[in-house]
Amino acid sequence: MDLGTLIGIVLSFGLVLSAIMTGSSLIIFVSVPSLLIVVGGTIGAGLVNYPMNYIIGVIGVIKNTFFSSLDSPAEIIDRFKDYANRARREGILSLEPLIKEIDDDYMRKGLQLTVDGLEPQTIQEILETEISYLAERHATGADVVSALGTLAPAMGMIGTVIGLVQMLQTMSDPSSIGPAMAVALLTTLYGALIANLILMPMAGKLKARSKEEILLREMIMEGILSISKGENPRIIEEKLNSYLPPKDRIVSE
């Protein structure tokens, strides 16, 4: 689980709530009509902007900001050193029994193509296509979340206008001015909070997570191509290390 996302949300909302409770009661900042305008309006506008399956899929996309199942670069390098050593000692077909034990679909597919005897250029074309469409799917998910983050403050402004209109129409009744003004201001607050503390930061996290996964996929592709060419395990390690910052590189003893 990504503690950074969880800590960030808890910390940001916690500080906002603490500031509110320091000066007044929290209950006066609760408005069901404001929440319906912002949340309902944002989802509705999102459905107009994107196909329904995109909006429904946002739940799974947001989940990726909390959970990550990516292998560490060090683990990937160790795996390919082992695979390369096996391939040099026992032949490329010795990797076939190991393929079923690999959880990563991308790595499993690449090694299977290698074992099947495809040319390195063909393997590279297939794996690069996989990376290309992976990047496109990730970009779409981040764009949807970002678009919802843009729509939320706009719906807050619409709620503000609604509240002001209600207030102006009932100026003769002083008791109705307060609730109408509350809806006007709270919708803006809700839209700003949802956009700036949840949706926009999550869109940024998704983009960062996508870059991280693409980098790991490129490392895996480099390792697979090197094995298919029969390169020395030491050379493979150096190639894969080049994808990492100097401080994170693995130094063999």
Rank of each mutant, 00 (worst) to 15 (best):
T5E: 05
I7N: 00
I9T: 07
F13A: 15
F13L: 15
L17E: 09
M21R: 01
G23N: 08
V30Q: 02
G41I: 01
Y50H: 14
Y54L: 03
I56Q: 13
G57S: 11
G57L: 00
V61I: 10
V61H: 05
N64I: 00
F66S: 06
L70M: 11
I76S: 06
N85V: 13
R89I: 09
I92C: 07
P97T: 05
K100L: 04
K100P: 00
I102N: 01
R108V: 02
R108M: 03
L111H: 03
Q112I: 00
Q112M: 11
T114P: 05
D116T: 01
G117E: 14
L118C: 06
L118H: 08
E119S: 13
Q121M: 12
T122S: 15
L127G: 04
T129W: 03
Y133V: 09
Y133M: 12
L134P: 02
A135P: 01
R137S: 07
A139Y: 13
T140P: 11
T140I: 14
D143Q: 14
V145D: 02
V145I: 15
S146K: 01
L148M: 15
P153S: 09
P153H: 10
A154C: 06
M155Y: 14
G159P: 05
G159Q: 01
I162C: 13
G163I: 04
M167K: 00
S172N: 15
S172K: 08
A182F: 12
A182R: 00
A184Q: 03
A184V: 10
L186G: 04
T188W: 01
G191M: 04
L193N: 02
I194C: 11
A195R: 00
N196W: 05
N196H: 14
L199M: 10
A203M: 06
L206P: 05
K211M: 13
E213F: 07
M219W: 09
M219G: 07
E222G: 04
I224N: 02
I224F: 09
L225I: 12
R234C: 06
I236Q: 02
N241C: 04
P246S: 08
P246E: 07
P246M: 01
R249Q: 14
R249F: 08
E253P: 15
